[in-house]
Design a protein around this nucleic acid. Sequence first.
DNA 1: GGATGTAGGACTGATTCAGTCTGATATCGC
DNA 2: GCGATATCAGACTGAATCAGTCCTACATCC
Lengths: 160, 160
Amino acid sequence: MLKLTKKADYGLIALKHLAVIEHGASASAKEIAETYGIPLPLLSKILQKLARTGFLQSEHGTNGGYRLARAASTINTLEVIRSIDGPIILTHCFTDHLNCGLSGKCTVREPLRKVHEGILQILANTTIQDLCVEPAESDACRNGERLHNVAISRAILSAV
Amino acid sequence: MLKLTKKADYGLIALKHLAVIEHGASASAKEIAETYGIPLPLLSKILQKLARTGFLQSEHGTNGGYRLARAASTINTLEVIRSIDGPIILTHCFTDHLNCGLSGKCTVREPLRKVHEGILQILANTTIQDLCVEPAESDACRNGERLHNVAISRAILSAV
DNA sequence: GGATGTAGGACTGATTCAGTCTGATATCGC
DNA sequence: GCGATATCAGACTGAATCAGTCCTACATCC
């Protein structure tokens, strides 16, 4: 149905949270979970993954928690989502070339790949810092900047 | 996981099939199902939906089948996917504003909406006719045309 | 009337997702 | 040292969704 998982959602929310708070400050999983009403054990696992991937630095013990390991502007949503949910697969054909109708019958595979890459590019060009730019309060993050590559010429009709 | 359902896949394959065969010609669900190895009853239901939405015209009886009700260039993949799978929801917040962390805590909702709209636009700008453009055989469809709005400047690294 | 086709609802099995439970390990403050 | 508070990590469960099947109409042509 072409939707993000809640885990990815939570991960992005947490990363944004860490990006917005004071530079270099850390926040515990519990803190973030309570702020946004996310189940703590679930958020913990997500943050652990993000730490393993290298987006976050973790600190054990009292007053421990997580802090961004890289600048918010260098973390893009594609990497985050891939880190949490695994590879992004638009259509099934991309991975299992064998089971795909066999003998190259799946004629929409290559054309759809362009769509696939377009979506990946949007995600790749959207950083955590971009998520911090609120329509009203533009300076929640440092030197906020609009989505640069996602050129939306016109709003899509009845979106949802 | 941000992927298309198989139903949507099948629907696009069927529409492309109908777009590629001779203009105005029809094909039965059985014919298409056998060509691509798609379970017939499943494909039937998909084609029925597409007919109800107005993309296809159905003909009962012997030698019946489906034919495109509109030109392939006027059917975009967004409408098709929505017709088959229902609304496209990138993040859960877009629909249920109430359950989303309450009190507007879900701070990534609006920023992600831009990403969402970007993806919708890619799909909206990709027509069935675009799917017919093969890298090698560019004239499988009539006056084939490249994806015009999906400007991919560079291939995304390890895509999948 | 039978073969072939669409139309549509109900149902089942498999997969995936969201969340829980349990336990281990590390750090800090007392 | 000990306990409180963290992260770390795997196994497990319930729910939702997806893919596919089954069955029964109904329409058209020969």
